[in-house]
Structures are given as structure tokens and as C-alpha cells.
């Protein structure tokens, strides 16, 4: 699985001060470093170790992930929105690769 594909779900419109739920999912094996392949050799650890969410450049939520996080990690959390803007999401792999996506919300 070379390319991690992120998916993000949140409302497109909210009222000022609303607390919205954000659900995220990314395709990734989250290879724990515990598993052995068919030849009995330990498969090296390769996980996403950090997830970060920002809104208009300000941190909202982050998570440090370890090998006990399931494959294709799902992460939900909340955000209080006071203005229209853009959420930025970033997943950082053990190998330094950062997968990013964004989502806009209109606050009336």
C-alpha cells in the first residue's frame, strides 16, 4: 500500500459557535512490527505516528499513534467553529511521508 488515501467527513455549513463532529479515515496497513511473514521473518514496523487537525492555521486536535492502532486508522473528534474557513488534516508516517487533505466549512 504505497499511497495512503485520506477521507474526511464534516458538515459543509454550521452556525457560529457550533461544535461539529469530524470523522477521518486513512488507508494504511499500520504494520505493527510484531507480525511475521510467511517465511517467519518479522515485518518491520511502519505506521502513521501522528495525526494533526488545524482550522485556519490554529491547532484543534492531534493524536500520537502507536502500533496498537488498528489498520486503516479511523479518528473522530470535535471542533468549535466561530468563522468560515479551512480545516487542514495531516498524517505523518514513520518514514517521514506526510499525507494532507483539506475541507472547507461555511459558518453563517
Amino acid at each position: 500500500m504505497a499511497i495512503a488515501t485520506p477521507r474526511v467527513r464534516l458538515p459543509a455549513i454550521a452556525k457560529k459557535g457550533d461544535i461539529i463532529e469530524i470523522k477521518t479515515l486513512i488507508s494504511h496497513d499500520m504494520e505493527s512490527g510484531q507480525r511475521r511473514d510467511s517465511a517467519g521473518v518479522v515485518v518491520p514496523r511502519k505506521i502513521i505516528k501522528l495525526f494533526e487537525a488545524q482550522f485556519n492555521g490554529r491547532p484543534v486536535f492531534s493524536a500520537d499513534w502507536n502500533p496498537s492502532v488498528s489498520a486503516n486508522p479511523y479518528q473522530s473528534f470535535f471542533a468549535r467553529v466561530e468563522e468560515s474557513g479551512t480545516f487542514e488534516f495531516a498524517w505523518t508516517d514513520d518514514d517521514g511521508t506526510v499525507t494532507k487533505t483539506t475541507a472547507k466549512i461555511t459558518v453563517a
Binding site: I20, P59, A63, A79
Partner: peptide
């Protein structure tokens, strides 16, 4: 397993 970090903006 994981550490989840919040801010006041988490709501």
C-alpha cells in the same frame, strides 16, 4: 495505544 491532544478549539 495512543495519546489524544485537545485544545479549547476542540469544543
Amino acid at each position: 495505544v495512543a495519546s489524544f491532544r485537545f485544545t479549547p478549539a476542540s469544543g
